[in-house]
């Protein structure tokens, strides 16, 4: 087991454990905090994959914006710990079974991947030379310009929508 593999093993296992912990919390604030740690670990995984820009983005947006939004809502609605109530549905064994089946299927599909497309041009060395951000920018603003614009549209719609939906009715 080489060093990278060891590090990966740590991050992978902790990610899995934290995600399990996250979804089994009764207190939503606890779950959000676990989610925070989870996102940090995932950002670390991105760093492993030479995607520094994405790691930064992950931290800023997910850990910085989305989680804070969740916390805001939890505080706003004053969601307490669900006292004495069940936290799972009545049919949660079925859901567990479904999830297991899903994992199994995906692993089976993984086994069946035979065709590897030809490698692209952005090798590790090139990314190291240019810098991750430059590489992302070069591809983003040329090949994927239209999706970029549409993504900005989506954000605009989200802003307006969120405001309208959550606005308190003026009596």
């Amino acid at each position: 087991m080489t060093i990278p593999q060891l590090f990966f093993a740590y991050f992978a296992i902790s990610t899995v454990i934290m995600s399990i912990l996250m979804i089994t919390r009764k207190n939503p604030v606890h779950a959000v905090l676990w989610m925070l740690v989870l996102f940090v670990h995932i950002a670390a995984l991105y760093l492993f994959l030479n995607a520094e820009f994405l790691a930064a983005i992950q931290m800023i947006i997910y850990a910085g914006a989305v989680l804070v939004l969740f916390l805001f809502v939890i505080m706003l609605l004053n969601l307490r710990k669900e006292e004495g109530e069940r936290k799972y549905n009545t049919f949660w064994p079925v859901c567990a079974g479904i999830s297991v089946i899903m994992v199994v299927f995906m692993l089976v599909i993984l086994r069946k991947i035979e065709v590897i497309p030809p490698l692209g041009e952005y090798s590790i060395e090139k990314i190291h030379t240019e810098g991750s951000m430059m590489s992302v920018g070069k591809v983003l603003y040329t090949k994927y310009l239209l999706p970029f614009e549409i993504a900005s549209f989506i954000l605009l719609v989200a802003i307006i929508g969120a405001v309208i939906l959550a606005k308190r009715r003026v009596e």
Partner: peptide
């Protein structure tokens, strides 16, 4: 809502399983 989600998921798994 969860019931609907469950049924959808079962449907998706069914199709994937069929394909596999």
């Amino acid at each position: 809502l969860s019931g609907y989600a469950l049924i959808m998921t079962i449907g998706a798994i069914f199709i994937v399983g069929l394909w596999i």
